[in-house]
Amino acid sequence: TGEEYIAVGDSTAQQVGDLTFKKGEILLVIEKKPDGWWIAKDAKGNEGLVPRTYLEPYS
């Protein structure tokens, strides 16, 4: 379980453990880390770190 967020920009994984996503994708945020990198899952079930500045709450 988690909260749904929509990507407001494209982000390409810079290192192992990062999640690549495109603008408009809905991501499920699993954990919000205080350093600004959140753990999220995409629609295909891929999981990784995403920069919170690229996400907005999805409603």
Results as ranks from 00 to 15, higher is better:
Pro57Ser: 07
Leu19Glu: 01
Ala7Gln: 01
Val50Ile: 07
Tyr5Lys: 01
Glu56Gln: 09
Glu4Met: 15
Ile30Asn: 02
Gly9Tyr: 15
Asn46Gln: 08
Ala43Thr: 10
Ala43Glu: 09
Tyr54Ser: 14
Thr12Phe: 13
Glu47Asp: 04
Glu47His: 09
Lys32Ala: 05
Lys41Glu: 04
Tyr58Met: 11
Val29Phe: 00
Gln15Phe: 11
Phe21Cys: 02
Ala43Asn: 10
Gly2Thr: 08
Val16Ser: 11
Val50Gln: 00
Glu31Asn: 09
Asn46Leu: 07
Glu25Lys: 01
Gln15Asp: 11
Ile6Val: 10
Gly45Leu: 03
Asp42Arg: 01
Pro51Cys: 15
Trp38Pro: 01
Leu19Cys: 03
Pro57Ile: 07
Val29Ile: 11
Trp37Gly: 06
Asp35Ile: 02
Gly2Ala: 11
Asp35Leu: 03
Lys41Cys: 08
Lys23Val: 08
Gly45Arg: 02
Pro51Asn: 15
Ile39Met: 09
Lys32Asn: 02
Val29His: 00
Gly36Asn: 05
Ser11Ile: 15
Trp37Phe: 12
Val50Asp: 02
Ile6Gln: 06
Gln14Asn: 12
Gly24Ala: 03
Gly17His: 06
Gln15Ile: 10
Gly48Tyr: 04
Ile39Asp: 02
Ala43Asp: 09
Gly2Glu: 08
Gly17Pro: 05
Tyr5Glu: 01
Thr1Asp: 11
Ile26Glu: 01
Ile39Phe: 10
Asp42Pro: 01
Asn46Trp: 04
Thr12Glu: 12
Trp37Ile: 13
Glu25Val: 04
Glu31Ser: 10
Gly48Val: 03
Leu49Asp: 03
Leu19Gln: 00
Ala7Asp: 00
Trp37Leu: 10
Gly45Ile: 00
Gly2Pro: 12
Ala43Val: 09
Gly9Val: 15
Glu47Phe: 13
Val16Met: 11
Val50His: 02
Lys23Ser: 06
Leu27Thr: 00
Ile39Lys: 08
Phe21Ile: 08
Ser11Lys: 14
Gly17Arg: 05
Lys32Arg: 07
Lys44Phe: 14
Glu31His: 11
Asp42Trp: 00
Lys41Ile: 14
Leu49Ile: 10
Ile26Cys: 06
Arg52Cys: 15
Leu27Gln: 01
Pro51Glu: 14
Leu28Cys: 10
Asn46Glu: 07
Lys22Arg: 11
Ala40Glu: 00
Thr20Met: 09
Lys41Gln: 11
Gly45His: 03
Leu49Gly: 06
Leu19Met: 05
Gly45Asp: 04
Phe21Asp: 00
Asp35Asn: 10
Glu25His: 06
Ile26Asn: 02
Glu56Ala: 09
Leu55Lys: 01
Gln14Ala: 12
Thr12Met: 12
Gly17Met: 06
Phe21Pro: 01
Glu56His: 07
Glu3Thr: 08
Glu4Ile: 14
Trp38Lys: 00
Gly9Lys: 15
Gly2Arg: 09
Thr53Met: 12
Ser59Met: 13
Tyr58Asn: 07
Thr12Trp: 11
Glu56Ile: 11
Leu55Phe: 05
Tyr58Lys: 08
Glu47Leu: 14
Asp10Cys: 08
Gly48Gln: 02
Gly17Ala: 06
Gln14Gly: 11
Ile6Gly: 01
Gln15His: 13
Glu3Phe: 08
Glu47Ile: 15
Leu28Val: 10
Thr12Asp: 13
Lys32Trp: 04
Asp35Val: 02
Thr20Arg: 09
Tyr54Glu: 10
Ala43Gly: 10
Ile30Trp: 03
Glu47Gly: 04
Leu27Gly: 00
Glu31Cys: 13
Ala13Arg: 15
Asp10Pro: 06
Val29Ser: 00
Pro51Met: 13
Leu27Ala: 00
Ile26Ala: 03
Leu55His: 01
Lys41Val: 14
Phe21Met: 03
Glu4Phe: 15
Trp38Ile: 02
Ile6Pro: 02
Thr1Gly: 12
Ser59His: 13
Glu3Leu: 09
Trp37Cys: 12
Gly45Asn: 05
Ala7Ser: 05
Asn46Ile: 08
Gly2Gln: 09
Leu27Glu: 00
Thr1Ala: 13
Ser11Asp: 03
Gly36Met: 04
Leu49Pro: 06
Leu55Tyr: 01
Gly45Ala: 03
Leu19Ser: 01
Val8Ala: 06
Pro51Thr: 07
Ile26Ser: 03
Ala7Asn: 01
Gly24Glu: 02
Thr12Ser: 10
Pro34Thr: 11
Thr53Pro: 06
Asp42Cys: 03
Ala7Phe: 09
Gly9Ile: 15
Gly48Asp: 00
Thr1Val: 13
Glu31Gly: 08
Tyr58Trp: 11
Thr20Phe: 08
Asp10Ala: 07
Pro57Trp: 05
Pro34Glu: 13
Asp18Arg: 14
Leu55Asp: 03
Asp18Phe: 15
Gly24Ile: 02
Ala40Met: 14
Trp38Leu: 04
Val50Pro: 02
Glu3Asn: 08
Gly2Cys: 14
Val8Cys: 13
Leu19Ala: 01
Thr53Asn: 14
Gly2Tyr: 14
Asp18Cys: 15
Pro57Phe: 07
Gly9Phe: 15
Leu19Lys: 01
Leu49Met: 10
Glu4Asn: 08
Ile26Lys: 06
Val50Asn: 01
Pro34Val: 10
Lys44Tyr: 14
